[in-house]
């Protein structure tokens, strides 16, 4: 019987693959809910933080914080890239990097150098191979990222900005729209993009304790941290969603392949039987 055993082995191996993809799909389906809960839980902070920043932008302070001042001469830019630690999540990371690369190339063509910090294993190994200057990296944040784990990479970039080593800072991550859609997003972090200036009815300013500089330093640092943290959570939810979808289509493809292989196997078996019978009949006729 032609290749019957080989086809059987092939079917077995596809079945095993399907077991793995099914399991991964199920794991992601359960994790995505937790990731979404985390995302929701961190939203009030982000919202109130934005509100406070909005107030600060409106206050008539004598002190202008460097984070809020646009620099005319951009010589070096920074990117904070949020990626996943693990693969098998479809084109999630690839899409993100593909959205970012033209920007990086455009800067480089203009003679502007690019600095990166990477969150997640995938970005770290990808951009290392591209030989783009990497200032910092953090990996293996797990299922429940903590702000404290992100402080390091953010501080690296903020210090670089304060010291004038970079003149612009952006955040790159996958925005979780819904389970089927994740949007590669690039947001400008620094200088703070100007908000919609609503004309204030009267000039007012905060009482700063101890002084404007210290307080604004602190607030704006926390603001950037909250944005990066939020992006990390969005990316985590995106990762699970993308993995779930990718693994679902992998399982479906496996099922289809098994169907086709079974058909081929049955045909081969039937052909072998037919051949055997005709041989016997032919043999008997010859006698």
């Amino acid at each position: 019987m032609a290749g019957g055993r080989e086809i059987k082995t092939k079917i077995k191996s596809v079945q095993n693959t399907r077991k793995v993809t099914r399991a991964l799909e199920m794991v992601s389906a359960s994790k995505i809910r937790r990731a979404q809960d985390l995302m929701k839980a961190s939203r009030p902070y982000a919202r109130l933080m934005r509100q406070a920043i909005g107030h600060i932008a409106l206050a008539n302070s004598e002190y202008r914080h460097p984070f809020m001042v646009e620099r005319e001469d951009v010589r070096r830019v920074g990117y904070v890239i949020v990626s996943t630690d693990r693969g098998l999540c479809g084109g999630l990371n690839t899409n993100l990097f593909r959205t970012l690369l033209p920007q990086i190339r455009a800067w480089q063509d203009k003679g502007v150098e690019v600095d990166l910090v990477c969150i997640g294993q995938k970005a770290t190994s990808y951009f290392r191979r591209l030989k783009i200057n990497m200032l910092g990296s953090v990996t293996h944040l797990g299922e429940k990222p903590q702000v404290a784990e992100l402080v390091g990479v953010i501080k690296v970039m903020l210090d670089a900005y304060t010291e004038g080593r970079i003149d612009r800072l952006s955040l790159v991550y996958n925005d979780f729209v819904n389970t089927m859609t994740q949007k590669a997003t690039i947001d400008q972090l620094l200088p703070l993009p100007p908000g919609d200036e609503s004309p204030s009815t009267h000039a007012w300013d905060y009482l700063y304790e101890p002084d404007a500089r210290t307080v604004l330093d602190h607030v704006l640092t926390r603001y950037v941290e909250s944005l990066v943290y939020q992006a990390t959570l969005e990316n985590l939810a995106s990762e699970h969603a993308a993995r779930m979808v990718a693994m679902k289509s992998a399982s479906d493809n496996a099922t289809k392949a098994i169907g086709e292989l079974t058909l081929i196997y049955n045909k081969a078996r039937q052909a072998a039987i037919t051949q055997e019978i005709s041989e016997i009949v032919g043999g008997a006729a010859a006698v």
């Binding site: 390091g152 990479v153 210090d159």
Partner: peptide, 15 residues
């Protein structure tokens, strides 16, 4: 914070 920043830099260099 300083220690965390240093750690992030080390991580990148190690990578």
């Amino acid at each position: 914070d300083e220690a965390a920043a240093r750690k992030a830099k080390d991580e990148a260099e190690r990578a």
